[in-house]
Simulated scan of single mutants.
Amino acid sequence: MNALSLFTLDLLEELSLRHDDQERWEFTLDRLTEIGFNALNMLCFTPETGAIHWVRSSMSKGWLNRYDSQGYAEADPMLAQVQNGKESLYVQAASLRSADGHSSKALGLNHDLEKAGYIHLYSLVVPCPNNEAKLVVLSSDRPDAQAQMTERQRQMRVLATVLATNLGSDIPSNHGRVYDITSIAPTTPDLTPRELQVLDLLALGHRNDRIAELLNLSEVTVRTHLKNAREKLRAPTRESALVRAMQLGLINPPGYRNR
């Protein structure tokens, strides 16, 4: 049994002896530091809609303020897991340069992650009771972190699952080394009134040319609004954009029942 597996078993036993959520967080952060992790983020959400319930982070206050002020949530590939359903993800900060070469947000996110020392990040979505899930994100700046996160996927998954099932939200906001950052990781996209109008008409079955006629726009402009809406909804097709918008309650065409 390797060191990471032994660490996880030991951590699980120790957490079973602690019942205060704040104590569990603080103890876990100390133990994670011992094996080279420098931050832990955890996010609770509803998989069907992507609605976030709470987010906790042990990243530095300076970094979190920067993340908020620069709007990096738009380019955060791990936050995107809440919508795209990808179960696990490894990201090296430098790789964000090529992930979206035309996005200033992605470039800024890369630069500031590296500057803050959050070089290697691993995340896992863990199903939970009551139709919820938790996204666990671990960060490290150690040179061997990439090998650990990519070659020991099974052990990383077990560790993330232990964290998801033993750590909760019942801690004071911005207490100690754990910050409540729910407000800076929104999942309801800010669509413009025109983008919503276009989606509404699309949901009613109208084609682009008819939507353009009804709104007194060119077809090119209609396509642009649809493209922008898809990007904000993180939807690869117009059909998936409609489903996502309906689930979030952004549009409510006749005959649709939000489950």
Results as ranks from 00 to 15, higher is better:
T33M: 06
S69F: 05
D68G: 03
Y72T: 13
R56Q: 15
T33K: 08
F45Q: 04
M59S: 03
D21A: 10
F27T: 13
R18G: 12
A51H: 04
L15C: 05
F7E: 14
M59E: 03
L15K: 05
S58V: 03
T49W: 08
P77G: 01
Q70N: 12
T46H: 04
S16R: 10
T8A: 15
E13V: 14
S60M: 02
L17V: 11
E26D: 15
E26N: 12
P47K: 09
T46Q: 05
G36Y: 07
T46E: 06
W63D: 01
T28R: 10
K61M: 01
W54V: 07
T28I: 14
L17T: 11
E26S: 13
D76R: 04
K61A: 02
H53P: 00
T8G: 11
T33S: 14
L17K: 11
F27E: 11
E48A: 08
L64Y: 01
N65M: 15
K61T: 01
Q22A: 01
F45W: 05
A51E: 12
A39Q: 01
S60N: 01
L29N: 07
L11H: 02
F7K: 04
L43T: 15
D20Q: 07
F7G: 09
Q22F: 02
Y72V: 10
D10M: 07
E34H: 13
K61V: 04
N65D: 15
F37Y: 06
G36R: 07
R24S: 10
L29G: 08
E34N: 10
L12R: 09
T33I: 00
F37C: 04
Q70F: 15
G62P: 00
Q70A: 14
V55M: 10
E13N: 09
E26L: 10
F37D: 04
S57R: 02
G62Y: 00
A73I: 12
S60V: 00
N41I: 06
S60R: 01
E74K: 15
A73Y: 11
D21R: 00
E14I: 07
L15G: 02
M42E: 08
L29V: 06
L12Q: 14
Y72L: 13
E34I: 11
E23V: 08
E74H: 13
L17M: 13
T46I: 05
E34V: 12
D76G: 08
A51I: 08
S57W: 01
G50M: 01
S69V: 11
E26I: 05
R24P: 11
V55N: 04
S58F: 04
R31S: 12
G71S: 09
L15R: 07
F27N: 07
S16Y: 05
A73M: 08
S57V: 05
C44V: 01
L17P: 02
T28M: 14
L32A: 06
T33H: 11
C44M: 05
S69K: 09
R18S: 14
L29M: 07
L12A: 15
